[in-house]
Nucleic acid binder design. Structure first.
Length: 276
DNA sequence: AAACCGGGCAACCGCTGGCTA
DNA sequence: CTAGCCAGCGGTTGCCCGGTT
């Protein structure tokens, strides 16, 4: 039963990668291609576990990774997608070519989340990177703590589901599970697969009627995860009898995701009206 | 000049569903 | 059908570096 373990982790290196290790990894992947991470360290002559190799390649060495600061356009996109998808970093990353989920997650945690915490009204008004840095100087520290305590009592509690993968198959299989329908993510870093997943989500529609029910009874884990997958604010404007309208919104949501494949094209005007 | 502090980010951790022997 | 590994995910940690005192 089962398969042999990928590695024992005994005697393996950890921590930062050296230039030599990077070269070995790149050469190996150029020769044998991506995947088969379990066997890769042996082939490459690396004293790393396959998981570590995969992470290094995906987040740093991949040739299509875009270097440099996040642009204001990208920042804007991240803010909008996060308001729709929550902490689905991989899903957000797939809409930002050349950016990794780790990079976006770090950028969010170190820049955007703090700004939004301090001034939720600026959520859809991105600033330049330097400005956000200045906002977090020592003078604000005490104020931050006070704000956090104040917000703790007033801000909406959002259920954050654990990390998981959702494939098209699992969506089909678990079609009765509300959360699976919306909070999907693909297995590989390919837009095509993400798109096919979204198509599968379409097949399970209408799900916005379920959203309303979840909104009505947000106590269960299942319904909370569903509500979390969307921007809860716009649900406040929706009545139970407006399920048709919700279906329309769901279609618009998909359109937004499609627009993000072509940054700058129609996105601004569309997303502004959608998220207003 | 040195010590301290905080931000940024690469890497690790733990979990999950999918896949396969 | 089942057990257990694989691949991928989000959360967290800890090191490095630049700015401040």
């Amino acid at each position: 039963m089962g398969r042999t373990p990928c590695c024992s982790k005994v005697g393996l290196l950890r921590g930062p990668w050296s230039v030599k290790e990077d070269k070995l990894l790149i050469n190996c992947i150029q020769t044998h291609g991506e995947g088969h991470w379990r066997d890769l360290p042996k082939k490459a002559g690396l004293l790393r576990c396959g998981k570590s190799c995969r992470l290094r390649w995906m987040n740093y060495l991949r040739p299509d990774i875009k270097r440099g600061n996040i642009t204001s356009d990208e920042e804007d996109l991240i803010l909008r997608l996060h308001s729709l998808l929550g902490n689905r970093w991989s899903l957000i990353a797939k809409r930002l070519p050349g950016r990794t989920d780790n990079e976006i997650k770090n950028y969010w945690n170190s820049h955007l989340s703090k700004r939004i915490e301090k001034n939720p009204a600026t959520k859809d008004q991105p600033k330049k990177r330097n400005q956000s840095k200045q906002m977090n100087n020592n003078n604000n520290k005490r104020q931050d703590i006070e704000n956090d305590e104040e917000e703790e009592t007033t801000k909406t509690k959002i259920y954050q589901p654990k990390a998981c993968r959702v494939s098209a198959n699992s969506i089909k299989r678990n079609s009765s599970s509300l959360g699976s329908r919306v909070s999907g993510s693909s297995s590989h870093g390919e837009l095509g697969k993400t798109d096919s997943l979204i198509n599968n989500i379409t097949c399970t529609a209408p799900c916005w009627s379920d959203l309303v029910q979840a909104k009505e009874a947000p106590v269960s884990e299942e319904s909370c995860s569903l509500v979390n997958a969307c921007d809860i604010s716009f649900l406040d404007f929706v009545q139970e009898e407006d399920c048709n309208m919700l279906d329309t919104i769901f279609e618009e949501y998909q359109q937004l995701l499609n627009f993000t494949e072509y940054p700058g094209q129609q996105l601004d005007s569309f997303a502004d009206s959608f998220l207003a």
